[in-house]
Design a protein around this nucleic acid. Sequence first.
RNA 1: GGUUCCGUCGUCUAGUGGUCUAGGACGUCUGGUUCUCAUCCAGAAAAUCGCGGGUUCGACUCCCGCCGGAAUCACCA
Length: 506
Amino acid sequence: MNITRFAPSPTGYIHLGNVRSAIYPYLIAKQSDGGNFILRIEDTDQNRYVEGATELILETLTWLGLDWDEGIEKGGDHSPYYQSERRDIYHAYARKLLKAGRAYADPTPSEKIDEYRKEDNEKKLPFLYRNHRPETADSSDAWEPGTPLRFKSDPKSVEWHDEVMGDLKTGPEVMDDIILIKKDGLPTYNFAHIVDDYEMQVTHIVRGVEYLSSMPNYLAIYEALGISHPKFVSLPHVLATQGNKKLSKRDGAKSVIDYKDEGVVKEAMLNYLACLGWNDGTEQEIYSKDELIEKFDISRIQTSGARFDEVKLLWQNGQWIRKIYDEQGVDALYDRTVSRDEASIKSNAINPTRDSLINFWPEIAMDYSEDYRKQVLSIIYDRLKVLSDLREYTTYFFEDPRIDLEFLQSNKFIKKLSETEQRDLLSAAIDKLQNVEDWTADNLQNTLNDLLAETGKKPAELFSLIRIAISYANFSPALHLTMAVLGKDRTIARLNATCSAIVNDL
RNA sequence: GGUUCCGUCGUCUAGUGGUCUAGGACGUCUGGUUCUCAUCCAGAAAAUCGCGGGUUCGACUCCCGCCGGAAUCACCA
């Protein structure tokens, strides 16, 4: 049975690089019967705490459907799940180390430590605190919270296995007397996560490769505590689009929530991220969450960093938008475009920070019926890269476009027609369409075909003229579909309007 | 500087000694689908497998060296 955890610190939003270390442990947990995915908040650094960050974490996980079995807002057997509330547990473990002679209180002021560091740097020596260990470290096991507590290291070479990186080893020179408990009585990450993962019976620690260099120290603590360690799964970095650096907030990495707000669907985000640095060896590109759970395999995680490519994410999103429409129908896709958002409702339960109504339609669209919006959606959905494209692509379905003859006549096909021809073609179209009794897409297609035959014009010329006269948009769905959705009255009114504008211009 | 990791088309990747004149996807380009945009379909260009040695009948695949990139060296995680 796999027990994994996602353990973010509430220091801001979650970016693409961060979520991957939530997705993989989620998949690992779900692959086993009775697996547990735990959400723990690592809030031991009060200086870095950011208001609203926890809510953003909840919203992100909820949106992606990475439901946790235990953790904050949910409870479980290993409560509490905020590290700041687990102080007594860490202190108990710290006392064990103290008693075993593997920890010591260190009253050395930080200014003094800075001096040591400076000295060593000047001598071109790597700074190791154990070389400056105070004498009291060996003589006394007294410790009062309020004084930092350090690990008493016993330098030696270590070897260990990482599920992704393979067999690793380092020399004794990296082990040091790291801080276990800070002056404020709260543990450092280095100590807290070891205690918590053990207490919560975590089987796999999934985290970024940046922790690799601390592994010897962690291993030493596990050993001193006399406890076994979980499997280690080190994830390579997600690299920023530009440069060679890992994705980071400092360099402007976008929040996952930003993508949600722009209308990236959760399936695409999950799919793209899961496959950034992992593949199952086949040529499959599109995976549902269930398929990922079924096929994910730790041993196939990449060892090198992967660059984030927004263009490919957007391609995936287009694929998923079409897939949702094709497999679940227009209603399902429509629900993604305007609805109460479960993810932000959940986050708002702690702190109402965000509007929980998501709506990707132009404002004016809300004056129309849901049924009408669905009709629009069903003819335009296959052009969407993100759901918010609706705002730009559909306005002419809801309000009459401004007549702009310059725009009309600059079209490369319409340009070939004289204004007189344009007028004649439009009035012929109006006459013909007026007689259409049953305003259906099929009938309209037939009518347009007849018109084409009668006028002898090229489709490109005739259709472009009509299309732009009713939409004044750079592009639109197929003409007969657009007209069918728009309705007879509106279509003819718009054609008339353009026609008279041309007459006035003559 | 110490330590550690990484290195196949622009990008994500397949590849575990011969089936690799290196496969797929995104992107790019060309053509097709009675109009635009998009989709879809077909096709093209695109990787001297970081470099140099070695082992081998044979190396992208194993070994060594080098180079390049990254991460980390906090009372941050």
